[in-house]
Design a protein around this nucleic acid. Structure first.
Lengths: 134, 134
DNA sequence: GCATCTAAGTGCAAGATGCATATTGCTTTA
DNA sequence: TAAAGCAATATGCATCTTGCACTTAGATGC
C-alpha cells in the first residue's frame, strides 16, 4: 500500500445499532419494562432495584433513558397530572420493540455459546491443545 | 447529617468481585473456554471470533486476560515449547471456576427477569400505570 | 419556616473500549 | 542472507461509559 496516508477516519456506529450485551443490560431491562406499561424514570429505577437485576445507579438510569429516546427506542412527554414533581413518562416505540426482540435473541445465543463451551464441546478442526498433564 | 464534611472516600470494589454482566461478557467467555482446555491469547482471540459472539478487539482480549490474572481468575506461564514466538499459556484457577459458575447463574437469572417482564408479569402492589390509550 | 420525600438531572474522575500501531521472534523465499 | 511475512503479545490515545456525589425543584408534613 502507499505509505503516505497513516489513518483513515473510521466512522463509528450509532449507540444502539445492534445488540452488544456490554452496557446494554440496563437499556434492555428498561425496554422490557416499558413493553408492559408506560413508566417514568424514578419508577423504573425503583422497580429495577427490586427485580433481581444488578444495582443500577439512578443517574445512569436517567441518562440511559435520554439516550434511548435520542436513538428512537422510546418516546417521552411531561406528565403533570399527578401530584408532586412533574414526571417524564416514557413509552416504547416500534423501533424499541424490534431492538428488544433482537437483543433477547442475541442474549440467548450468547448463553448457548457459553453453555456449549462449558460442557466441553467437540473441537472438530481444532485439536484439543491440552499441553501436558503429566 | 452534619453539613461540614462534603465527601467521603467511598472505596471501590475490585474488578471481578461479582458478576456485573456489563463488560464482563468477554471475561466470562474467556473463562468458559479455559474451562475445557488451556490456551493462549491469540488462540482464544481467534476462537472467539468464530463462535457466534460479538467481535472482540484483540487488544482488549489481551488486556482482559492480564486483568483476569491479576484478579486470580486465571494463571499463566510462558510456553516456549512450540515453534514461533513464545506464547503465554493460560489456565483456569479454582477462583475462576467459581466465578464462572456464579456468572452463568447470574446471566440465567437476568434472562429470566427479562423474559418475565416481556410476557407481562402480574404487578401485585403496583398498579398498571397505563395512562391513557384513547 | 424547616425538613423530607419525590423526581430529574449534572459534574467529575476513573475505568473500559476501539482502533491503529509497535515490537519481537521465527519461518519462508527470492 | 536479506527481505518479507506471519504469529503473538502488547501499548498509545481518544472516546465512551460508569459510579458517586451533588444540585435543583415541587409538594407535603411538622
Amino acid at each position: 500500500m502507499s505509505p503516505s496516508e497513516k489513518r483513515s477516519p473510521a466512522e463509528k456506529s450509532p449507540p444502539f445499532a445492534e445488540p452488544r450485551l456490554n452496557g446494554d443490560l440496563l437499556a434492555t431491562s428498561l425496554l422490557a419494562f416499558l413493553k408492559s406499561y408506560n413508566a417514568y424514570g424514578y419508577q423504573l429505577s425503583q422497580q429495577l432495584a427490586g427485580a433481581g437485576l444488578p444495582q443500577f445507579d439512578s443517574g445512569t438510569v436517567y441518562r440511559t433513558l435520554r439516550q434511548l429516546e435520542k436513538s428512537g427506542m422510546v418516546s417521552s412527554f411531561w406528565d403533570t397530572s399527578a401530584n408532586g414533581p412533574a414526571r417524564r413518562m416514557y413509552s416504547l416505540t416500534r423501533a424499541g420493540d424490534v431492538f428488544l426482540g433482537s437483543w433477547i435473541e442475541t442474549m440467548q445465543r450468547y448463553q448457548a455459546v457459553l453453555t456449549t463451551a462449558l460442557t466441553g464441546f467437540a473441537l472438530a478442526d481444532q485439536k484439543p491443545a491440552k499441553p501436558e498433564e503429566s
